[in-house]
Each structure stands twice: as C-alpha cells, then as structure tokens.
Design a protein around this nucleic acid. Structure first.
Length: 444
DNA sequence: ACTGACCGACAACCAGCGGACCCA
DNA sequence: TGGGTCAAGTTCTTGTCGGTCAG
C-alpha cells in the first residue's frame, strides 16, 4: 500500500512506488520518493488511473460552507465556468475594474475548501481581507504587513507566502493568485511549487510576460482558460474610452544631447557587432557591461538618451494645455522618473505621489482625491498596480515604458464606468523621431 | 503604533546597415 | 575561400515593493 504525505513543500510517497509516477523522483539523501507539492493532484490522478491502492495523508481539510450575496455578471460566470471545466485549475485574464475579486470569492464558494489568497501588495491584502470578512461568516487570516495569522480562509502577500509556503502547503485546498503574473518571478514561483492545493486560480489583467515566464505560470497554476478584453466590456461594465497620441519635438538643445547619447550607444553596437532583436539580446549586453567598460558606457549613454526623450520640455508645455482644457476633470498624470514628478508638482501645484511619499501623506492625498478636494495627481510608477486609486476620467502618460502591462494598468485607472456615462480619455505624449515612437508602438 | 533605514526581489531595459581574424 | 569565432571571473540603472529591525 502506497502512502502519500506532505513534507515541507513536497509529496512523499512511501511503500515502494513505481518509478514512473508523474513528478516523482527518488531522493538519495533522504532515501525517499518525492514529488514537488504542486503535482499532488496529477499524482493522485495517475494512481487512480492505474488502480493502485494508496492512502492519502497529504491534507485532511475541513469542508466549509460558504455563501455569497454577489450575483455574478455574465462574463464573470463564464470565466468561472471555464475554470471549473478546466478541472479547477487555470488563469483568467480580465481588465482592471471588472471584478476579479468577485470571481475569486465565487470560486471559494463553489469548492467550499480552505483557501489561500496571495496578493502582491499590502493594499490589496487589506482590500481582500475586507471583502472576505464582509462576505463570509468566519475568521479571515492574514499574513503580511506585520501580522501572521492563519485561518481556513487566509490572505497573504507574495513575500509572506514565499517565506511560509513550505510549512503551510498542506493547509489549503484552493489557492487564489491575484495579479498572477507576479508568480513568474524567480522566487515567487516557488510559492506555487510548495503548495499542495489541487485547485488553483490565477487572476490578472495581463497574463503574458515578455520574458515568457507565463508558461511556467501555466504549468504551476494552469493555462489561461478565459480572456476578457477591455473592449469587450467598454461601454457596458467599463467606461468607453479614447486614446490620443500626441507627438512633441525635442528642443534643439535636447536634440543635441539625445543624438549624442544615442550615438554613443549605437556606435558601440556597430563596433562590437551586436544584434539587438529581443530582450535576451539586451540582457546579453547587460551581462557584458559587467566587465567591458565600453559596454557599460554604452548602456549609461542609452539611459541618458532615454531620460532626455522621456522628460522632454515640450511634453511639460503640452501638459499645461491639457490641464487647461480639462479644468473640470479628474486627472492622473504618469511619468517614468521621480524627478519629473516633483518638477510637475511644483510647476502646476499638483500633489505628487512617489515611492518616497510616506504612508500617511499618501493616504491623505488619495483621500482628498477621492472626496474631490484635489482633482489632479501626478505620480511615477506607484499607482500602476495594487493600490486602490479613486476614479479619474483623464490619464496623461508623459512617459512610459514599452511595457504592455504598464499601459494596460494605467488605462485601467480611468475605466470605471462614469456616473454621467462620459468617456474616459488617455493622452500619450511621445517625442517624435526618437526611440520612443518604437516603444509606444510596441506596447499596443 | 509609527517611522526610517536597510535588504532583497522584481520589472523594464531593444540599432538600422555591412568588421577582423584564424583555420581547415 | 568559406566558415566559425571573437569574449573574459556571473548582470547596467531606476523605481517600487514587502519584510525586518532599531528607535
């Protein structure tokens, strides 16, 4: 008789198992057969299929009777159904503001098993905790932000989950990964490896990763089983929107500096005969810069060129006219550099939020933005994800990366349906005849 | 309880023509 | 003359996060 037990992130199989069970390897050091915990469900399936007798001591979980007052919207129900059809495993891609939390809650209700929700930020930790507390008539545990309390329903940050997954891996039947794209990170992916939870769901607005790590996520959590785009929901559940690209020129002085730095960079590429086609080529260059001073110089020059184009003076001028035109609107301004945030903040007297902004000040600014005292906020990358930002209807992207993810998240900031049914508007300021045009193209 | 300093993790980071050399 | 290899001791910088610890 085989016996399965959970042991710090692995499933241990005792009783002389066949050597070809999925994921199972013989570990010389401990003289035992083990599989990584995330293959637990697969392992059980294989044993069943072959009719092998086994005793399952991996997790003995209580069954919870949960219910929710939420009524799922049509697309939310469809997403849940798709996930259930896929064997309670898989990822769902839905736009920011489409109610991903509600789907997570519905999944918990459907399975009625202890569940761990993993989130990237403290802000999200608190949001989930509040929701779950309100919805379910039982204690909600929390790991993160200075508290480590585990209950049958627990919300955790990725960091805390990473630290404790090996010890808690047998306590949950369902794992909910919010903003699941984070799970592709080198360290975070271990969380999903160490958990035995047979049921898993990943929620995100942007499943695919430029580094290809979504394939690892698909392996650990399950493949993408449902995709709902912004345009599917715009006009009904989300606001209609327009995107305006505005090209500005560099000043002659900026142009000189840009060409000089960009030249240094391209000269180096030419000289050393490097092909830059993909991210990995770029990584190659970064690697090289570790011991090749010329490569390092080239990278620094590229950085400076980027700074010049991202912080171009005429973008600031242009922002002035946009702010003028939208006097009555609620506006969020995004930049890539902290310096520029403070410059804009001083010039236009707009409250600024960067990573340097303390917790209390940040709370105060967002609170005043919410109640209407402030109608504008300027920020670097802080508000991209994982923060509950009050609604706005106009976003101005002064400078952004080529990242599709960043773009989607920023757009999501203005898409909550408007009370007056008005359209949301996103301005994208791009410097002409620079690499930024390419970058802007890449993100859509 | 809150704050600031520290640490580590994560993500984005993407040219526009076209060498030099050795060896089989 | 054509084809393979340059090249090594393992990684730029900036922005942001969470966890930890001291005060």
């Amino acid at each position: 008789m085989l016996e399965l037990t959970y042991e710090s992130g692995t499933i241990r199989v005792t009783g002389d198992p066949p050597s070809d069970l999925p994921g199972v390897e013989y570990d010389e050091r401990t003289q035992s057969a083990r599989a990584p915990a995330f293959r637990y469900a697969e392992l059980v399936d294989a044993l069943e299929e072959r009719g092998l007798a086994y005793e399952d001591r991996v997790c003995s979980l209580p069954s919870l009777s949960l219910s929710t007052a939420y009524d799922l919207r049509e697309y939310q129900q469809a997403a849940l159904d798709a996930w259930r059809d896929a064997g309670d495993r898989g990822c769902l891609e839905l736009p920011t503001g489409s109610g991903k939390t509600v789907i997570g809650i519905a999944a918990m209700v459907a399975l009625g098993t202890p569940a761990l929700v993993v989130v990237p930020t403290i802000d999200l930790l608190e949001q989930w905790q509040r929701e779950l507390q309100r919805e379910f008539d039982q204690p909600v545990g929390r790991m993160g932000g200075g508290e480590q309390r585990v209950e049958d329903i627990t919300v955790s940050t990725y960091d805390s989950a990473y630290l404790r997954a090996d010890e808690l891996g047998d306590r949950f039947g369902l794992a909910v990964f919010d903003e699941v794209h984070h799970l592709g990170g080198e360290g975070y992916r271990d969380i999903a490896r160490l958990l035995a939870a047979p049921a898993r769901v990943g929620l995100t607005a942007t499943f695919e990763r430029p580094d290809g790590a979504h394939e690892i996520i698909a392996d650990l959590v399950g493949p993408l089983v449902q995709r709902v785009s912004v345009d599917d929901l715009a006009g009904e559940h989300l606001a209609d929107y327009d995107i305006k690209r505005i090209e500005v020129a560099l000043t002659p002085d900026e142009r000189d500096r840009y060409e000089e730095h960009q030249g240094t960079f391209t000269d180096y590429l030419k000289q050393s005969n490097i092909q830059l086609r993909s991210g990995s080529d770029y990584q190659e260059l970064v690697k090289r810069s570790g011991n090749d001073p010329a490569a390092r110089e080239a990278l620094l020059a590229k950085q400076r060129a980027r700074e010049v184009m991202m912080n171009a003076q005429r973008k600031v001028d242009r922002l002035a006219t946009i702010l003028d035109r939208h006097r009555g609107d609620r506006i969020i301004v995004f930049t890539a550099h902290t310096d520029l945030v403070y410059r804009l903040s001083e010039r236009f007297l707009i409250p600024a939020i960067t990573h340097e902004t303390g917790a209390s000040e940040r709370r105060e600014i967002l609170e005043r933005f919410r109640d209407g005292t402030y109608s504008r906020v300027v920020t670097a990358n802080v508000l991209d994800e994982g923060v509950d930002v009050p609604d706005a209807n106009v976003a101005v992207v002064l400078s952004g990366s080529g990242s599709e993810r960043e773009f989607t998240q920023r757009l999501g900031r203005i898409l909550r349906p408007k009370a007056d049914g008005g359209r949301a508007l996103l301005y994208e300021l791009v410097t002409e005849e620079t690499a930024e045009e390419r970058v802007a193209r890449r993100r859509r």
